[in-house]
């Protein structure tokens, strides 16, 4: 084959390295950033949740709840920041919250059920987002949670 005798040309190598870096490493991520920030700013910035005008967390990232009056997240999941707990987990925490706050267990069960997610039921058990149900508690019982309304 004649190809072996040809002199190797390094210009395409250098040129394509620079151009692929510009297209793949800069142009594309910046293009997506532009589209995301203009059309979907809420998702693009991490689904930050606000309470009375203050950023209190992200819908998708677990935050630490230790007080007995709140629902608690898991502390053993793969990502370490699993924002959700199963319905059973939520139900099991209801007696503690009810004891600490005096809110009837039935009302807490109702709030949990109202916020149930996991519409793809065939793939797993239904779950609730911990931050979302805690925010629902604050909204529903402002007097009990008066110190936490931001």
């Amino acid at each position: 084959m004649t190809e072996n005798k040809e002199k190797w040309n390094f210009k395409p190598i250098i040129g394509l390295t620079v151009i692929s870096l510009l297209i793949c490493g800069l142009f594309f991520p910046l293009l997506v950033t532009g589209i995301a920030q203009v059309f979907f700013p809420y998702q693009a910035n991490g689904e930050i949740v606000q309470l009375n005008g203050k950023a209190v967390g992200s819908n998708l990232i677990a935050q630490n709840f230790t007080l007995p009056i709140f629902f608690h997240p898991r502390n053993d999941s793969a990502s370490g920041v699993d924002p959700d707990i199963t319905l059973q987990d939520a139900y099991s925490q209801i007696p503690r919250i009810s004891n600490a706050t005096g809110i009837p267990a039935d009302s807490l069960t109702y709030i949990v059920n109202q916020n149930q997610e996991g519409t793809l039921w065939i793939f797993g058990s239904p779950y609730v987002n911990v931050l979302r149900i805690n925010l629902a508690l604050i909204k529903e019982y402002p007097s009990i949670y008066s110190g936490f309304s931001g």
Partner: peptide
């Protein structure tokens, strides 16, 4: 359904 090391939303 869900266990240690498995994310709740996937199962």
């Amino acid at each position: 359904l869900v266990a240690s090391g498995i994310e709740t939303r996937f199962g």
